[in-house]
Design a protein around this nucleic acid. Sequence first.
DNA 1: AATGAATGAGGGTTCATTCAT
DNA 2: AATGAATGAACCCTCATTCAT
Lengths: 197, 197, 197, 197
Amino acid sequence: MKKQRPKYKQIIEAAVEVIADNGYHASQVSKIAKKAGVADGTIYLYFKNKEDILISVFEEKMGQFIEQIVDSISNKNNANDKLLTLIEMHFRQLTADHHLAIVTQLELRQSNAELRQKINQILKPYLVVIDDIIAEGTEQGIFRDGLNVPLIRQMIFGTLDEIVTNWVMKEQKYDLAEQAPVVHAFITDGLSVKHKH
Amino acid sequence: MKKQRPKYKQIIEAAVEVIADNGYHASQVSKIAKKAGVADGTIYLYFKNKEDILISVFEEKMGQFIEQIVDSISNKNNANDKLLTLIEMHFRQLTADHHLAIVTQLELRQSNAELRQKINQILKPYLVVIDDIIAEGTEQGIFRDGLNVPLIRQMIFGTLDEIVTNWVMKEQKYDLAEQAPVVHAFITDGLSVKHKH
Amino acid sequence: MKKQRPKYKQIIEAAVEVIADNGYHASQVSKIAKKAGVADGTIYLYFKNKEDILISVFEEKMGQFIEQIVDSISNKNNANDKLLTLIEMHFRQLTADHHLAIVTQLELRQSNAELRQKINQILKPYLVVIDDIIAEGTEQGIFRDGLNVPLIRQMIFGTLDEIVTNWVMKEQKYDLAEQAPVVHAFITDGLSVKHKH
Amino acid sequence: MKKQRPKYKQIIEAAVEVIADNGYHASQVSKIAKKAGVADGTIYLYFKNKEDILISVFEEKMGQFIEQIVDSISNKNNANDKLLTLIEMHFRQLTADHHLAIVTQLELRQSNAELRQKINQILKPYLVVIDDIIAEGTEQGIFRDGLNVPLIRQMIFGTLDEIVTNWVMKEQKYDLAEQAPVVHAFITDGLSVKHKH
DNA sequence: AATGAATGAGGGTTCATTCAT
DNA sequence: AATGAATGAACCCTCATTCAT
């Protein structure tokens, strides 16, 4: 399996760095090869073409990203805690790997229609996680009934995404992770059942 | 003034269409010139370079976009109505001009770092409009005190932006404008002072 | 019309020379451009791709080649004289333009299946000229009846082609044109000793 | 001796097939290795480089080709019968091995100047066979005196070669071997009507 | 002001060959 | 002897921009 071989990971890591530093279009394959310490041609033993590198970067990194979040959520037992944890993990992981943050928030938007479809496919499991939390919250009676789940999910994801993008574009000058509780409060107070007398 | 001359607008309109139809990367200057009915060289009498066309497209279109929203808001007298109107107008305008929707939500994201900075500059007045509504709502006592305004604004903008992007990517198969009240409810219920006894 | 513009001919002439000197595969587009005194990109204003240069070279040169032969034949009034003239002209023209000789006899065989079809299309008028001479000779009673015309034509063309190829590969060290009468005699009379009464 | 080892023949046979199936330019060394059931590197234990494979293909196959013809001719006792037999065998062998026919008539022509020289070297014994028949025919008084032997040989070879090439390009839709007597008649007797008493 | 022919820099990809195992 | 992963040189073509008319 190609993905097990050491050079595969080498190239992926090199690609993330090179793309984060130079932007997708200024990231020549030869630059990635150099950073990875392999020959140009070697890239093509592991990836179909340049676009495939980008997809694979996202696939690998996003896979880990989602896995981490799912793991962290699994031992929380109500939707509120899960949502807070998701937000924290989302922010924390991108804080920890700023190359990845730049790639996901900025460079990946470079993509053409076809690539965008693939990225959305990869992103889907994450959106499902959010959907599940919403459904669970509703069952638990802590979120309203009758929510338009896809719409709410878009709003949650859009909120997180925009906040991270702003943070990346401001060159990560402030602490992203500490925003989590406020963001969570914004979202849940909108979702929560109101306690009236 | 160049911007007054008829060919300026012709080129801007052609650029929006060409980009929406072909995608950012397949939008050569010569294609825009052809659609605009001018010679390739003529483009450079009106625009410094290709990037300048794109910035100008966004400038012109976003200027009108914001102006429309400001106009519509001006005769509302509370932050809640203003916010609802802003959301409605945001959705309605992009619904009405689907070329513009594609360009702003998908194609223009594919630009390089520098262009992205400029686009954000142009977007600023819109963000100020949102900031003003938040401030006004707080003053009027209908939004909470002590809000982190830039953060809230990011959440609002991120919410709208993600919803429109999803709608564009689903090829505008449903009615975007009718989502406005639900979106507004999500946002304001989060923001609103809770009425406890 | 592109073919009328001076650069078109410049490029064609440069291509013939460069291909004759270096062989088709060592004939980089940039080399042809340099010899023609134009920029690399200019080539692509006149030709679709590298293969198109080759086809056009053959088209142009072969067009003239055939035209010359047809002209020379037209004022001969029997098939024998026509055939002799065709052979003479075939040899004489390739003798006069040794770059062309190299390209047609050696480099053009480089072609892939698709290109070969196109070359055959271009060659067709020449083969028709040969067919006509055979038919005329038969009508005039100087060639046998019941000839398999396509086969005879292949034999005639193959004969001329092989002789020229040998001459090119021997680096044109002897006089090709002076072979014409012997070749003509072989074609018309064959190898055998004649039995006359 | 390398040529005795089993993989040598395997690679040669694979090369003929791969070239016939894919064309000269799409015949990568790795494809030949795969078809031969050996590793890429193994090729270089038997052949100096890619060109050496091609030369060896031609050498091996042409060696057999000529041997067959020489054998068949040896028990004929006049030049006319020998010539007819040569033509028949030439046609028959290429009919029997259509991969070889494609390779010799089409694909191998696409080679570079140097390779072509070597191929001609290999072809030489065949040309000598033809020369010998011509000389014998003259001695026997059945061919004319004073023939320009190399020229006549070129005409004979060119005739056969062109006929086979046409047949290959027409995708071998008709029976090549049955043309032999007509071709022989053309060569020996020419086009002209014979004047017998 | 307008044209559009000409420019030429730049990069993704292929594939014959090598060499450590 | 055999493998096959790794190498890296080589080249066609695109397209933003210029400039003579």
